[in-house]
């Protein structure tokens, strides 16, 4: 009986959270930022995007190198080393690029935004803004939502490019594969919409998810130091799980017909 009640309580809590998150989303996205708010968006693109570049590049390089190494050792047993470039490109564009960028983005930018907004709430900055007749949703939340949605696809593109070069270094410079084969496989078989386009769609969806979760967790945080810590953890955990789950659904609906 107690278990049932806890279950019910939890479900209600989740549902009301979802409701609040949706209301916040509705208020915040209402209308594009005006020209006056543009500097705010640009500043957030710096916080979200530019500050995430280092981690994106480092991770992209390592992932590209590792996958290329694995592919090369397996494929060379069948004399198919030339397919390394193509395999790597497909894996990156369709899955790893969006998913890894999403996860890294949630860890780097998402947690930072939750902590930042949570701290603003705890120190009454949001309240004081409201009391000055300034809507904190428009002033704080909207620029961050837009900045996230703009910067994450760009980061994913960067991730993919760096990973492909990382793969090139391992497969060609180090293991001695053929550079021509590495590039031409990609050139001939990667399709603009089916591989690149759908990957971009995924990234945009993940970007929306992560920024939404991060901003909402910050905005809805319990205004205490522990509350901020919990909210930050929740941002990373929820976004990561959501990215992986949604990725499965997206892949199924995008490529499920084969």
């Amino acid at each position: 009986m107690d278990l049932l009640r806890t279950l019910g309580d939890r479900t209600l809590e989740r549902l009301s959270g979802l409701g609040r998150a949706s209301i916040m989303w509705g208020h915040a996205v209402w209308g594009l930022p005006t020209l006056r708010e543009l500097p705010l968006v640009i500043r957030q693109i710096y916080n979200f995007g530019v500050l995430s570049i280092v981690i994106i590049i480092l991770s992209g390089f390592s992932i590209g190198a590792v996958i290329s190494l694995q592919f090369y050792t397996q494929l060379s047993r069948f004399g198919a080393e030339d397919a390394v470039g193509l395999g790597l490109a497909l894996v990156l564009l369709r899955e790893l690029g969006p998913v890894m960028t999403g996860l890294l983005f949630a860890g780097r930018a998402g947690s930072a935004v939750t902590a930042e907004i949570g701290l603003m709430k705890t120190t009454e900055q949001l309240s004081s803004m409201e009391m000055m007749g300034v809507d904190p949703l428009r002033r704080i939340v909207t620029p961050r939502l837009w900045a996230g949605v703009i910067s994450m696809p760009l980061l994913a593109a960067m991730f993919n490019v760096v990973a492909i070069y990382g793969g090139l270094i391992v497969a060609v410079q180090w293991l001695g594969g053929d550079e021509g084969g590495y590039w031409s496989g990609m050139q001939e078989n990667v399709e603009i919409w089916n591989d690149l386009g759908k990957g971009v769609v995924k990234t945009v969806i993940f970007a929306l998810l992560v920024t939404w979760i991060a901003v909402f967790q910050g905005y809805d945080t319990d205004p205490t130091p522990e509350g901020i810590g919990l909210a930050t953890t929740r941002t990373v955990v929820t976004s990561s799980v959501m990215i992986l789950a949604v990725d499965f659904i997206l892949t199924l609906s995008m490529y499920g017909e084969f």
């Binding site: 120190t123 009454e124 009391m131 007749g133």
Partner: peptide, 26 residues
């Protein structure tokens, strides 16, 4: 609210703005 000024217990200054910009904000 434009006609109401409120001083919060924690001061609630915007931490990313200088003193000047904080006062200039409203």
């Amino acid at each position: 609210r434009k006609d109401i000024g409120m001083l919060f217990q924690s001061s609630a200054l915007f931490t990313d703005l200088s003193v000047f910009e904080n006062v200039a904000f409203p």
